[in-house]
Measured scan of single mutants.
Amino acid sequence: SKDAAQYVYDEAQKGVTQVTVNGVTFKFDNWQKLLKYAQKLLN
């Protein structure tokens, strides 16, 4: 959902490398990768 994507995006902006959405945890090597993933979700 857009809300989940926005949440992931906001978390990535904080510099975190993992985020949990609806009980599913996504882990990334660095926050830039998390940010890229979030941007994909938002598009």
Rank of each mutant, 00 (worst) to 15 (best):
S1C: 15
D3A: 02
D3V: 06
A4D: 14
A4G: 05
A4Q: 07
A4Y: 12
A4H: 07
A4S: 10
A5Q: 04
A5E: 09
A5I: 07
A5F: 09
Q6R: 09
Y7Q: 15
Y7I: 15
Y7L: 15
Y7R: 14
V8Y: 11
Y9D: 14
Y9I: 10
Y9F: 13
Y9M: 09
Y9L: 10
D10P: 09
D10M: 11
D10Q: 06
E11W: 14
E11T: 11
E11K: 10
E11V: 13
E11M: 07
E11Q: 13
A12L: 09
A12G: 06
A12R: 04
A12E: 06
A12V: 09
A12F: 12
A12Q: 04
Q13W: 11
K14G: 11
K14P: 09
K14W: 12
G15S: 08
G15P: 04
G15I: 12
G15V: 10
G15E: 09
V16N: 09
V16Q: 05
V16I: 06
T17A: 09
T17D: 08
Q18K: 07
Q18V: 08
V19W: 14
V19P: 08
T20S: 10
T20N: 03
N22R: 08
N22Q: 12
G23N: 03
G23Y: 13
G23S: 03
G23L: 14
G23E: 12
V24K: 04
V24G: 01
V24M: 13
T25A: 05
T25Q: 05
F26M: 09
F26K: 06
F26Y: 08
K27M: 15
K27Q: 08
F28S: 03
F28D: 03
D29V: 14
D29R: 04
D29S: 10
D29M: 07
N30L: 07
N30H: 11
W31F: 05
W31N: 00
W31D: 00
W31L: 07
Q32T: 06
Q32W: 08
Q32M: 03
Q32H: 12
Q32S: 04
K33W: 10
K33T: 08
K33E: 09
L34D: 00
L34W: 02
L34P: 00
L34M: 01
L35M: 01
K36F: 04
Y37R: 02
Y37S: 01
Y37A: 02
A38Y: 04
A38W: 08
Q39W: 12
Q39T: 04
L41G: 00
L41F: 03
L42W: 04
N43V: 03
N43T: 02
